[in-house]
Computed example of a mutant assay.
Amino acid sequence: MAAAAVVTVRLVRSFEHRNFKPVVFHGVRLDQTVHDFIQLVRDDIATRQGLPPPFKKYAYDTMKIIHQAHGAKTNELVMSLEDDEKLILQDGQTLTAAGVANETEVAFFRQEDYSVYKANPQTAW
């Protein structure tokens, strides 16, 4: 039985407007695949109390590590635009292989939104 971890998932609704909500997951199995964890998070947020409807119904499809316990935090307000090849979680990997550990924070977002924002990283107020 793999160790259970606490993972914070930052639901990113809009990069331009810095619109995101952190959701904490306890008892996350790090030996599950990224694909399974994404499904677990989707199922959870669809019914989670206190989460505004726009966050529940959004078409999230990609996860990226933002911060790991005892590591340096990024200055970016939503998430770093660097190191995608290292930090974006791949479907077939286990969470451990993807670099997720206890107290890791990951962003959950739509790849298409991220690509548009990354090409022109402007924030709107």
Rank of each mutant, 00 (worst) to 15 (best):
G27E: 11
P52V: 00
A124E: 14
G71I: 07
L87G: 10
T94L: 04
K64E: 03
L40I: 06
R48I: 07
N102E: 02
K56H: 00
V24T: 14
A4R: 10
D36P: 08
I65T: 01
Q49E: 11
A124D: 15
E105R: 06
A5Q: 02
D83E: 13
A69Y: 13
Q68Y: 02
Q122N: 13
A4C: 09
G27Q: 06
T62Q: 01
L77E: 15
I45A: 03
T94H: 05
A98M: 05
K73P: 13
R18L: 13
L81T: 14
R48W: 07
T104I: 01
K21E: 10
I38L: 06
K118L: 13
H70W: 12
G99W: 01
P53I: 01
S14A: 09
Y117P: 14
R110Q: 15
Q68M: 03
L89R: 02
F109A: 07
R13Y: 06
M1S: 11
P53H: 03
H70I: 09
E103D: 11
D83L: 08
M1A: 14
Q90V: 08
W125Q: 15
P121A: 03
D113F: 08
A69F: 12
Q68T: 05
F108V: 05
K73H: 12
A2I: 13
R18H: 09
V9K: 03
P22N: 06
P53C: 03
L40S: 05
E105D: 09
T94M: 05
T123H: 12
Q93G: 08
F37M: 06
E105C: 08
L11C: 07
K64Y: 00
A107S: 07
V100I: 03
D31Q: 05
T96F: 01
Q122G: 15
T74W: 13
R42L: 04
G92C: 09
D44N: 08
K86L: 13
G71S: 15
H17A: 15
F25M: 14
V6C: 15
I66E: 04
V116C: 14
F25P: 03
E76D: 10
A59R: 06
Y117I: 05
V9S: 03
V78T: 14
G92I: 10
P54E: 08
T96Y: 04
Y58W: 06
L95S: 01
T74I: 11
G92K: 11
A101I: 10
A4F: 03
A107E: 05
A46I: 03
A2L: 08
A119Q: 13
L89A: 00
T47V: 12
E82M: 12
G50L: 07
T104V: 02
K21I: 15
D43F: 12
R18C: 12
T94R: 01
